[in-house]
Design a protein around this nucleic acid. Structure first.
Lengths: 212, 212
DNA sequence: AAACAATAAAATTTCAAAATTTTCAAAATT
DNA sequence: AATTTTGAAAATTTTGAAATTTTATTGTTT
């Protein structure tokens, strides 16, 4: 059989981020096993790996749970995300060379393209995931020249936890949501490419502050 | 049989932080199993959980390694630790009440006591661990009123990774090392209790900067 | 009715072995 | 001589079931 757990891992991650597994709900290897045609232990293995990212909570002898979601936790994560992204962006502005500018500009271009589409048509589950990937790619590129593996690693984890928290925020996709988002991303990329650290920090704050 | 993996987990963590498992070295469940009288799968389980803390590196189909150590990585972690601790301390200074002051002062008192002993006598492996625990307790109390679970959780992980990095820094225990450390901790606690945010940030930086 | 104890059911952890994949060294090919 | 292929050994992943622990249920006592 093919490397089962990679696929199971990806599927679980998706279901956690999209809220298919409700925050706080119990994840029982013995129950989930059947749906994937693998043993309970393989599920356990996958869940242990997901707890590394912070999407799953693990307590010895108590099993696994999808990470709890609450306004407090969302706000906490948002605050932390701002700290990491501001720091990473400031360092990237300092260290980044032409290659960084090119990559950032490319990631932004792609993101805008996706967001314009989102603004026009209805959003299917799949399209939202495409957007989510492009968004992550943009933000990770922004901080990519902070030259701190540990900051980038932490940011990656926080980003997915952030997604997990905001998925049940219903008010997301109303009216001109994407128009606003497009402007916010534009502000960030403009400040970054202009090497204006303070403006970039402010733009990052403005982008995330609705989740505080 | 007793909950094996808790003890194995603690033992592994200790061996990783104290450098018994050399940074970068392969950790093979099949080999380690024998020494603990458990199955390879239990070792795997423990190692997956340790990879959550960042002490162990895991790559699918490639197994486990003690996290790599290098001057670059040490510096990176030190930098990140400063960011987290400065942020956490600043927030604690803002939010902390009398109870926080009491706890911080108590943790500092205990730490000084241990450090004075260390300065007098020779340092056994066990004594260093007692000191290390007291030090962690002090720094975690310092940031304990940042009111950000995610910051505290990240700090806890970074702290142990920091220990893992500096264990092979031989020049540690020479001469008046502990005298210097005592002064540094004093500066931190003084600034914190005086609610002097900027001085506290500076003291944190001065305390960690030798590892940059 | 509330608190406690005993028991049954469910879930988690652990094991030992089978299946799969990677690694490494020797042989074959370019 | 360098690269590629091959095959055996080693390591990792997965399994299915046994051992252990937690949780839920029922019955008993205060």
């Amino acid at each position: 059989m093919r490397i089962a757990s990679t696929e199971i891992y990806d599927d679980f991650q998706r279901k956690l981020i999209t809220g298919f597994f409700r925050p706080g709900s119990k994840l029982k290897p013995s129950s989930l096993q059947g749906a994937y045609g693998c043993s309970a232990n393989t599920v356990r293995d996958v869940l242990l790996r997901l707890s590394r990212v912070g999407l799953v909570e693990f307590e010895m002898q108590r099993g696994f749970r999808a990470r709890e979601a609450s306004p407090q936790r969302r706000s906490d994560i948002a605050r932390f995300r701002i700290l990491l992204e501001q720091t990473g962006a400031a360092l990237s502005i300092e260290n980044g060379d032409l290659e960084w500018e090119v990559k950032l500009s490319a990631a932004h271009h792609k993101l805008v393209h996706v967001e314009r589409q989102m603004d026009r048509s209805e959003r299917s589950q799949e399209e939202v995931e495409v957007w989510s990937d492009a968004e992550r790619e943009f933000h990770e590129t922004l901080i990519s020249r902070c030259d701190s593996p540990v900051l980038r690693e932490t940011y990656a984890n926080i980003y997915v936890q952030f997604r997990q928290q905001i998925v049940f925020q219903e008010r997301n996709f109303e009216g001109d949501f994407y128009k606003v988002i497009i402007r916010e991303h534009q502000s960030i990329v403009d400040a970054a490419l202009a090497r204006n650290t303070e403006a970039c920090k402010q733009a990052i704050y403005d982008h995330v502050k609705r989740n505080l």
